[in-house]
Amino acid sequence: MTVINAQSLDLTFQTADGPIQALKDVNLQINQGDFVSFIGPSGCGKTTFLRVIAALEHPTGGTVTVNGMTPDQARQARAYGYVFQAAGLYPWRTIGGNIRLPLEIMGYPKSEQADRMKNVLQLVDLEGFERKYPWQLSGGMQQRASIARALAFDADILLMDEPFGALDEIVRDHLNEQLLALWARTGKTIGFVTHSISEAVYLSTKIVVMSPRPGRITDVIESPLPKDRPLDIRDTPEFAALAHRVREGLRAGHSYD
């Protein structure tokens, strides 16, 4: 079932230096339960595309639907949780308080807030940290807490913009593994922006390769890897072949600038 459907999407920013075409003729279908990675050089419109899906930007041409609705309606229907590059936890709230934030805003009753908070803390392996303040947690734990916050109201779609970009590789490996486990357990549809080829290949069922000026999709790769992926799958020839194809796609997009 198609969850996100973009049809000939265009987005041009009007800036002081003239118009910038951030997205040009983008067509993409994302199905229920897909793990889709967006990869491409800086400025190719990955963030912009995710923000369009989340109704944080509005396209200047074409259409997007999320669960058959406009992005704005989908947001009202709590269709997605959004994870930003920085954890952005409120320093004046505990981890538990941060996770309750969307629940308070959406008007969940108190007891349900507590239950949901406990659940998602378990999902991201942060049980027992609910009374801690953000500054008492490492960067990786903070980012996990921000994922828990996005999961708290049980949206079907999780949009993540370079959530592990600021973390070191060892922590990142660990979080990637955990993210896969979480995805397997919850069956959510995930849109994931990254700069790392191996991260994209390791995580995704579908890899979207983009290129800049104007931002557009140059390749969409369906991953043949099995759903169950231990970390050492990265040493297999299938993995290497996939990574190679992504790298070629990135190079092709780059060739004429």
Partner: peptide, 12 residues
């Protein structure tokens, strides 16, 4: 802007 965007995603 990120903090404000986060609240927008909750339709606050």
């Amino acid at each position: 802007a990120m903090q404000l965007d986060l609240l927008r995603t909750y339709s606050a």
